[in-house]
Simulated scan of single mutants.
Amino acid sequence: MMPEAVGIQIENLHKEFADKRVIENLNLNIEAGSFVSIVGPSGCGKSTLLRLIAGLETPSAGTLKKTSEKELNFSFVFQDPNLLAWRTVYENVRLPFELNDQLKKLPADKQDKRIVESLKKVHLDESQDLFPHQLSGGMKMRVSLARALVNSPRLLLMDEPFAALDESTRFEMQRELHSLWQKERMTVVFVTHSLFESTFLSERIIMLKGVGARVVLDQKLALPATREESLRTTEAFNKIVEGLSERLRA
């Protein structure tokens, strides 16, 4: 039986770097199993918030709690795939088993099974012997995603993972990510600059602006649960994007 997804409760969160106030008095509740996008202009605190959730940064004040703190619950996908050039796709996805003390304890056959399953989820099982220089940008990002999935995360944090991809590849990755989220029902917190991307992927969009990462919009989206490509050209979709754009410019 799959473990429950992870919820996040944030109360009066503050984060400062030297004399720079990045996040001030932030309050959010992210439901377990939801797909939430964080949007806003550059420098508004989106990535800092994600790093605080991941435990890569420590709050200056306030509380940030997860409904489960199990060691293997979380994965982080960065904008850069960060693949090791001298390792194959399989060997890159295997990296968490070498770095994580809990994963190291798994028998070799179970490690192999998890790696193969993760590669199948991102449609790379037939490319496992290739090296990074033989991969397209989209394939490299799939490797990064597969590496994040080998520990069966119940919380997946993503910091603009598709920003560097061409539009066609980005659309394809968005569809695959949304489909994967529907199957796995992990909690996803996704940072992006793209209002179109956040609208296509998310159940809920949170917009941050200004000094202190002020929440200026927190909106649940009235869109179909399954996101087909045709959704991008519908009136409902474009009305949401238009409303987000107006709020961003306000």
Score class of each variant (00 low, 15 high):
62 G>K: 13
85 A>L: 11
179 S>D: 12
170 R>I: 01
231 L>F: 12
57 E>L: 14
96 P>D: 04
188 V>K: 09
155 L>Q: 02
66 K>I: 03
133 H>C: 08
25 N>M: 10
223 L>I: 06
202 S>A: 15
72 L>T: 11
109 D>W: 02
121 K>T: 09
96 P>V: 08
102 Q>M: 05
201 L>R: 05
132 P>S: 13
36 V>K: 02
226 T>I: 14
14 H>T: 04
136 S>F: 08
247 R>D: 10
199 T>L: 07
140 K>R: 15
34 S>Y: 03
219 Q>K: 14
150 V>T: 10
97 F>A: 05
216 V>Y: 04
246 E>V: 14
248 L>E: 12
17 F>E: 04
152 S>P: 00
176 E>G: 08
53 I>S: 01
76 F>V: 07
216 V>W: 05
72 L>N: 10
7 G>D: 10
40 G>E: 03
118 S>V: 04
78 F>E: 01
34 S>V: 07
70 K>L: 06
56 L>N: 01
48 T>Y: 05
76 F>A: 02
30 I>N: 07
54 A>T: 09
51 R>A: 01
32 A>F: 03
57 E>Q: 06
43 G>K: 15
157 L>K: 09
121 K>F: 06
39 V>P: 01
71 E>D: 06
45 G>D: 00
10 I>K: 07
51 R>D: 00
75 S>D: 00
122 V>F: 03
32 A>I: 07
95 L>T: 08
122 V>H: 08
8 I>T: 09
91 E>F: 10
83 L>R: 08
211 V>C: 02
215 V>C: 01
217 L>R: 13
35 F>P: 02
223 L>K: 12
133 H>Q: 14
121 K>A: 11
183 K>N: 13
247 R>P: 10
76 F>I: 04
87 R>H: 13
240 I>G: 05
43 G>T: 11
37 S>R: 06
82 N>Y: 10
129 D>Q: 11
39 V>G: 03
101 D>S: 13
191 V>L: 08
194 S>L: 10
89 V>F: 10
130 L>W: 05
87 R>G: 04
